[in-house]
Amino acid sequence: MYKILKKKELAANIYLMDVEAKRVAKTCKPGQFVIVRTDAAGERIPLTICDYDREAGTVTIVFQTVGAGTKMMAELQEGEAFHDFVGPLGCASEFVGEELSAIKDKRFLFVAGGVGAAPVYPQVKWLHEHGIAADVIVGSKTKDLLILEKEMEAVAGNLYVTTDDGSYGRSGMVTQTIKDLIAEGKQYDVCIAIGPMIMMKFVCLLTKEYQLPTIVSLNPIMVDGTGMCGACRVTVDGKVKFACVDGPEFDGHAVNFDEAMRRQQIYKTQEGRAMLALQEGETHHGGCGNCAD
């Protein structure tokens, strides 16, 4: 069992947990993910790693409750445990495997949207620990949903916070901040954008104009996470890739985002029903107008 040593609600319906998982904590790297299950009947939920403590043997995950599965995760308390916690899965961020001399003069721009701040954090932290100061844009719908601001501030070169509604920091989408920074004369060699698929798509459309190489981290539907099922296939540069073993990070300018977004919808109806069943129990028998029968 994988004990939850710490649980914290970072914002409404966004939770952080430190989970005891010695094997994962020992070998994981920024960019990789884990798959968790809450109980013996639970679905396998992939989550990008937010942080890790090799000595304590813990891995930090951050998640937002969006469906029945994540809602059940949120119900777990400190001292309780996940039924399953497997990883690290996928490839580490490209720069982790490169020679330090090759990356130390690179100008990194990270763009995080919403809960995407969680997977961005270990990358910025890793660079910080290796003496590289990266600029970070964190976008959030509104002030109350902003997460990990202090943590990010401690490891980023410059941190730019923007909210869609202007309730905190700059006002507008992350793409606006990218435009502003470049207009101010900032120059970057590589951009790493992680957030909702639609945000990554628009960041990539913009950075393509600037000819700024951009890496994105995809979170498609997955089952096993080890290459066995092919549920997570995405088209990159016209070729089919499995996000779980070939990714999850890819060249954002080559990703077919429209297809990837369509594929995320495959189980939406069923997920919605599962959520209703969880909220209303046996009482939900149709007639709500949202389900077919």
């Binding site: 066995m228 099922c229 549920a231 089919v240 073993v245």
Partner: peptide, 21 residues
């Protein structure tokens, strides 16, 4: 290991699965 696909157009449409999945 990894499931094979045919490599024909439309294989990533919603509703195409590997038998493994």
């Amino acid at each position: 290991g990894l499931p094979k696909f045919m490599g024909i157009p439309g294989e990533n449409a919603n509703g195409v699965f590997s038998a493994n999945e």
